[in-house]
Design a protein around this nucleic acid. Structure first.
Length: 208
DNA sequence: GGCCAGGTGTAAA
DNA sequence: TTTACACATGGC
């Protein structure tokens, strides 16, 4: 019944997020989130930070699209898969520019469907871009979410089933949760995924 | 030295 | 519709 609320309260008790990390993802609401979302695929955030630092002059959409492939490749070596990721990032940036014209317009009008059509963006990356870059009410599911839910005897087959289960659970308990999350569902989704990632860094959930 | 990271795309069974 | 594998660096 109220399992989702139990899980959220379990995480809240662990005190996993620092006050300054309101939305958990660094550079929340900027184009940098798009870059980070691709770079962090199967990669530690420490290594992503090294690449982001190399890219410090190219973190806006307008500056990013001035990069050439070889330079970009070089800058993102620390976060691995640099041949794929450089290609996919540049193509994604061009598509955003061509189809939405501006980053602000992309933030406003990006959809899950459109993102999933882009090469290099799957379910998880799509949701993290929607939530942390576009500020939409979309919850990100990852391997850790699935492992954590398994501890509470909850298991599904598909990504979407996990997403619906948790989003519905939050909706059904929103009267309680809204007070803690400033009546902002995006903040709740942002922090929930963040808490789960941080919980795993701490506890190292194994896939049993 | 082996395993894992804030996954995705492709191809084969 | 599932499974296996490539993609690559760096921390533990």
């Amino acid at each position: 019944m109220g399992k989702v609320l139990n899980i959220i309260e379990f995480l809240e008790k662990q005190d996993l997020l620092k006050d300054k990390d309101q939305f958990w993802w660094p550079a929340y609401g900027t184009f940098e989130v798009v870059i980070g979302a691709i770079l962090t695929q199967n990669t530690t955030w420490i290594n992503v930070e090294k690449s982001l630092k190399n890219l410090q002059n190219y973190l806006t959409l307008e500056s990013f699209i001035t990069l050439n492939l070889e330079d970009l490749k070089h800058y993102i070596i620390p976060s691995g898969f640099y041949n794929q990721k450089s290609q996919r990032l540049l193509e994604l940036a061009y598509n955003i520019k061509n189809q939405f014209n501006s980053f602000e317009n992309f933030q406003k009008n990006a959809t899950r469907i459109w993102l999933l059509e882009q090469k290099g963006i799957g379910d998880e990356t799509a949701d993290s871009i929607l939530c942390y870059c576009c500020k939409k009410d979309e919850l990100t599911i990852d391997t850790y979410t699935k492992r954590l839910l398994k501890l509470f005897d909850i298991e599904f087959k598909t990504y979407i089933q996990y997403k619906i289960y948790l989003e519905d659970g939050i909706e059904n308990n929103w009267q309680i949760l809204s007070k803690r999350y400033k009546n902002n569902k995006n903040l709740c989704y942002a922090q929930l995924h963040g808490m789960i990632v941080e919980y795993n860094k701490k506890e190292r959930l194994k896939n049993v």
